[in-house]
Amino acid sequence: MQDLAFLFSYLLQGLGVTIGVTIIALSFGFVLGIGMALLRVYGNKLASTLAAIYSTVIRALPVVLVIFILYFGISRIVDLSPFLSGAFALGFASTAYQSEIFRGAILSVPQGQMIAARALGMSRWKSIRYIILPQAIRIAIPAWSNEAAIVLKDSSLVYVIGVPEMLRRAEYVSARTLEPFIAFGVAALIYFILTFTTNRGLDYLERRYKLQM
């Protein structure tokens, strides 16, 4: 019983790390993903091709391999903590998936919207900024929620580079108490509650901002 209480409190200390990694990776992927999606749709041929190659290559690779490669890559250039390099590596991976989500959403905004915006005298960038993107982002919410849940689950993979998130902590406990079933089972339970609440929260967001057309 005491073990279980210890286990919970110990794992929950990793919860902050898990959530931190997830939020950094998601935000990072959000900004870069939208940028890449814009390059794919509106960029010149070279930029658009490069963005497409990035997306295709990253999406063909196991996320854990992307984390390893980027972790080593990043750590050769700048000296970051495993926490930050793990979060950024996961963010680079999520960028590829999010760029696909936003590209699809941008393309599904009716063409007349851009034409009407330009006809009002908006520059191309203003049309994208004020007319296309606000609609695309709303269209993207369901797919994006799914991505958020995936990044949350994938955040467990940064354990491979030594980030003390929940899985890493579960492993410590498992080694210490010699009860791996309970250690990993409780970790699974916390992840489940997390993804469950994330999904519910984003469902709410989706209903709240649903775009009627």
């Binding site: 579960a170 699974a188 489940f192």
Partner: peptide, 9 residues
């Protein structure tokens, strides 16, 4: 709803 690695462990 849970990570594959955790399931594996």
């Amino acid at each position: 709803g849970t990570p594959l690695v955790v399931q594996l462990f």
